[in-house]
């Protein structure tokens, strides 16, 4: 490992750790205002939706994004598995299997 790589690891580790840990320290010490608590109740659903969308759209900088059709097709059986079983494991396994099938039959 070169010296440059060492600095990158240290620098990136520090900024990442601070982003993760400082909020815990502040929340522990300070009383949060009501509006912030209300804002935060929406963080789980919004961030999970955005992360899901990340897998379903393809970015084209400067142009409108397009749909990742392959992922969208595989998402359908995965979502159905979730509705039927309410099990995270089932969603993941069905999703992977559906994607493998799509690729195997080159759909």
């Amino acid at each position: 490992m070169s010296l440059t790589e060492l600095w990158i690891i240290l620098g990136c580790a520090v900024v990442t750790l601070l982003s993760r840990v400082l909020p815990f320290v502040f929340v522990k010490q300070l009383q949060m205002p009501e509006w912030l608590l209300s804002f935060l109740t929406f963080v789980p659903i919004t961030i999970m939706t955005a992360l899901t969308c990340q897998g379903l759209f393809i970015a084209h900088p400067g142009h409108l994004a397009t749909v990742n059709w392959e992922n969208l097709w595989a998402a359908i059986p995965a979502t159905l598995a979730g509705i039927l079983t309410k099990s995270l494991l089932a969603v993941v396994v069905v999703g992977i299997a559906a994607m493998a099938c799509l690729r195997y039959f080159s759909i």
Binding site: T41, F42, P44, I45, M48, T49, L51, T52, Q54, G55, L56, N71, A74, A75, A78, T79, G82, I83, K86, S87, L88, A90, V91, V92, V94, G95, I96, A97, A98, M99, A100, C101, L102, R103, Y104
Partner: peptide
């Protein structure tokens, strides 16, 4: 490695997580 469909695991996982969040968050 893509032929086994493992690259879709991450998206599938978030689909599962967001769906479970949707049906079980009674506050919202």
């Amino acid at each position: 490695p893509e032929q086994f469909g493992f690259d879709f695991a991450l998206t599938a996982m978030f689909i599962g997580l967001v769906y479970l969040q949707l049906i079980s968050d009674r506050k919202l």
